[in-house]
Structure formats: C-alpha cells, structure tokens
Nucleic acid binder design. Structure first.
Lengths: 137, 137
DNA sequence: CTATTTGCAAACCCTTTGCAAAAAT
DNA sequence: ATTTTTGCAAAGGGTTTGCAAATAG
C-alpha cells in the first residue's frame, strides 16, 4: 500500500479526499485520460467536479508526482511516475503499456547527445502497435 | 525545387493554389503549427481560411505526404515527411530539429520487438532539451 | 487563523462540420 | 460535367479561469 499522505506532505500539498482519490485511481488504473479519471472517481466520490480533477492533475504533474503521456493521436494520459520507462500504445484498443528504460536506450541517448552536441533533458519514446495482447481476445 | 504538382497528382489530389501554398510553406519553414502555417500563408494568399489550412493538413497527412509531430506539451506541428527521423525539441525556444533514424535506434527497435513480443508499427522518439543553439544567441 | 483547494459556470482555446459557391480535372 | 475544394459561420470538445464557499493544516 502506497502512502499517498507522505508523498503529498513532502511536496507541501494538502491531502484532500479528492486529491487522494486521484492518486488512488492513478495507482489502480494505469494511464487513464482525464475523463477516465473523472468517471472512475465519481463512483466513490460523486460530488467531485471535472475542474478539480484537472486542477489536481496539473498540480501533481508540476510536482513531478505524475507524468503526462502524449499519445500519438494527441490525447493526453496520466501515469504515476516511479521510474523512467517508455510506452507501448495499441492503435486498436488504445491501451498503454510500460516498458523499462533499459541500458540499450540509455546508450542510445548518450550517443544522441554526443552526435547532436546536446544535453537531453528527457527522452520520450512511444512505440505504436497495430494490435496487442489485450485486444486479441 | 520540389515538384509539388507531381506529389499531388500521384495521390489524385487537386493542385489548388491553397494546397500548393501549404506544401511550399511546409517545405520552407519546418515544423510549423497550424496557426504558424496559416499566418505565413496569409502573407502570399490573404484570402485563405483557417479551415482550409486544417483541411489541407488533414488531407496531406492522410496521404502520407506530411506527418504530425506531437510535441511534449500537446501542441501539434507538421513536417514534410521524407525519411524516418526523430525530433529534438527545445523547451526554451520551441524549435524542432530533425535527426536521422539511425542504425542504433533501428537495432533498439528490433530488440524491443523481441523483448515485448510485439510488432512495432511506428516508433516516435522526442528528445527534449533545455536550450539549443537557436536560442543561445 | 491562514493558505489552499473545491465546485460551479463562464470563458477560452483549437478543431471539425455543414453547406453553397468556386475551382480543378 | 463531375468531383473536389474552398470559405464562412456555427458547432463541438477539451481545458482553463475567476470567484466565493469549504476545508486542511
């Protein structure tokens, strides 16, 4: 069980039930859209407003607690950030899966930095597949 | 000089002056936003409408003549597609630069496919930098 | 007690759509 | 002559904002 209270306290964010719900939902259901979050949270917390979900997602993102994943179609999804990873997106069922940011990718990043004479702040990698295991059943 | 007429004819698209303007602008100024395209084209073609720019960009994208680049901030930019490449985005000045999709990345993709038991349709790589050569002047 | 957060409604993008007129082939 | 494309204005969808009331610390 993750201690959301501590995560929020560390960043001096108030632990409102709405905010905890957002974190819980992000922990349970990975990569939801804003609307997916909203709909899911409403089941436990019917009075929550969409604006509150937006505001919380914004605050959590600003504080590095969650990350925004920009899907190839331009829709945003959200993800509790634990460690660097890349995303596999399925065109057919729209599911998103994480894969580790491995040594090979790390080496690639280093070479890219050398080749382009740049310092990369962040490397987003999104692999799109036509179908995935989730949608072939 | 690129022959836009032939590119369009190959895809059975009509060569209207508006469409040619969109292609010309994408060829000259790389990675514009829709609005950037619109503003630039208006100088030569003041009567063009924003809807026409949207429609043309959509059509050109559908026909594989241009690609949509999904910026980390969620804004879309457009790019005449010639060969596979990745994007370097500057956080500071918002410029976008291309770099080749090289052998190392190709190998990475192959291993990722093996590791995840997937067939990747497309791999989007966006490196974000804090500042770039364009904005340090 | 103070600062933050919530919820509502309005405002604000940006993008798409329907349709009649214009233009391309 | 036929089909596509344009331009306009309206509609649509998602996100942000202002503000007073509620809540957390």
């Amino acid at each position: 069980m993750v201690n959301f209270m501590n995560i929020l306290k560390e960043k001096n964010l108030k632990a409102t039930p709405q905010r905890i719900s957002v974190l819980k939902e992000l922990h349970k259901n990975e990569h939801p859209t804003i609307d997916g979050l909203y709909e899911a949270i409403k089941k436990d917390y019917p009075s929550i407003s969409l604006a509150t979900v937006y505001k919380n997602v914004h605050t959590l993102k600003e504080n590095g607690i969650i990350i925004e994943v920009n899907m190839p179609n331009g829709k945003m999804r959200y993800d509790i950030f634990t460690k660097p990873h890349i995303h596999i997106v399925c065109k057919n069922c729209n599911s998103v899966e994480d894969m580790d940011y491995d040594k090979q990718l790390c080496d690639y990043q280093k070479n890219l930095e050398a080749k382009g004479n740049i310092e990369i702040d962040r490397l987003d990698v999104i692999a799109t597949v036509e179908r995935c295991k989730h949608c072939s059943q």
